[in-house]
Amino acid sequence: MGKSSKDKRDLYYRRAKEEGWRARSAFKLLQLNEQFQLFKDVKRVVDLCAAPGSWSQVLSRELYQTQKNSHDEAKIVAVDLQPMTPIDGVTTLQADITHPKTLVKIMDIFGGEPADFVCSDGAPDVTGLHDLDEYLQAQLILSALQLTTCLLKPGGTFVAKIFRGRDIDLLYAQLSYLFDKVVCAKPRSSRGTSLEAFIVCIGYKPREGWTPKLELNKSAEEFFEGANIGRSDNLKFFELPDPEERVIANFIACGDLSDVDSDATYTLDASESRVVLDPVQMPTSPPYKLALEMKRRGDLVRR
């Protein structure tokens, strides 16, 4: 969570600090759950691209505190390439979601049972080039979807962050072959000025005659070959196997309309006494940490 003056005037940011969430994104999952009842009868959950862990915090609270499940009854696995500070009742894996070993580790934790719910709030570093950002995010969703099809039980739910763009209906169409219901949702806590939204896929239906299998160095196109959900390599020649199966995703805004505006900033009353709160989680090591240390030492110079 940032420390700029704009962040400090963002009420979702301030509320997250006060309530102990690691990031304001916790409210996005909470508002999605209010709309879709995502956690009903859920016992085994996988949180992909989980760092810093705000969604895992929500899952831990909902499954263990709200639903009163024991740690033996419910299992939560959080996966990310970055390290995460431990969360009560959550098993963290510092691993690659595309690697077959990650699938094996998750299934071992679940005792061989499939997951009820898989979610991903991951996103690549935004470049500001919308077409590129949308493409990279779509590839990340497909990577998460590959693992999901290997983990999720029939009838299970998948939720992932998307960037809405010109060709997003292609992804909607492909997901509609794998799920009974596909909805594009925009939580109130997600800034309206952002391309961000969330795809909520309910009722997983494995494709008949297709067995998903994670393999190293296998592209998403190759992974879904045989699933008969349409090819995405060339939009000009894109063909769907059965037009009657295709579903256009509805768009739903979720969250209380009377709640605060996520795009607005609110002044801090100078007369109010304010308490400086300690960080909920200490910063994790970024992948460029070594480069920063070398730069400070003067080891990075132009040659």
Rank of each mutant, 00 (worst) to 15 (best):
K105M: 15
K205G: 06
L30R: 01
D278K: 09
P243F: 08
V276G: 13
Q67W: 05
R15T: 02
D242Y: 04
Q35T: 02
I248E: 15
S4T: 13
D269V: 06
N250C: 11
K8Q: 10
S56A: 14
R296F: 04
K17M: 14
S120N: 07
A138F: 03
P83Q: 07
L171Y: 06
D233F: 12
S258H: 08
D233V: 12
Q35R: 08
I248C: 14
T92M: 12
S60I: 07
Y204M: 05
I229A: 04
N33R: 01
D180L: 15
I87Y: 03
Y172N: 12
G155T: 12
F39T: 03
R302G: 08
I248R: 15
I229K: 06
L277Y: 05
A270V: 15
D88Q: 09
R207H: 12
A50T: 13
L145P: 01
H71F: 11
D259L: 08
K153H: 13
V46D: 04
E196P: 00
L257Q: 12
E221R: 08
D72F: 12
R191V: 06
V280F: 01
V58D: 01
T127A: 14
R297S: 12
K153C: 11
L195D: 02
P100K: 10
K295E: 13
L175Y: 03
L300I: 15
S262M: 07
N228F: 00
R22L: 13
E225Y: 12
P243K: 08
R246G: 04
R44M: 11
F223R: 02
A227K: 02
M84Y: 08
F224M: 00
L171T: 03
V275G: 06
D72P: 03
T149N: 13
R14C: 15
M294F: 11
A78P: 03
P243E: 06
K6N: 08
L170M: 09
M294H: 13
A26D: 03
N234K: 08
G255M: 01
E19H: 01
D72G: 11
E293G: 02
R246N: 05
N234P: 00
T157M: 05
K105H: 13
A160E: 02
D121P: 00
E134C: 15
D125N: 13
K101Y: 10
K205V: 14
Y172D: 13
I141G: 02
C119R: 01
R24K: 11
Y64S: 09
T92C: 11
T149E: 05
A160Y: 00
G156N: 08
P286Q: 02
K43T: 14
F224E: 00
G155W: 15
D169Y: 04
C150N: 09
E73P: 10
L216P: 08
M84W: 06
P286K: 05
V159Y: 00
D263F: 14
R164D: 04
A227V: 05
F27V: 00
Q94S: 10
E272D: 14
G298V: 11
L152S: 04
T66A: 08
F251P: 06
G128M: 14
G111H: 05
P154A: 13
K68L: 13
E134I: 07
P241W: 06
S176P: 09
D116N: 15
T148K: 01
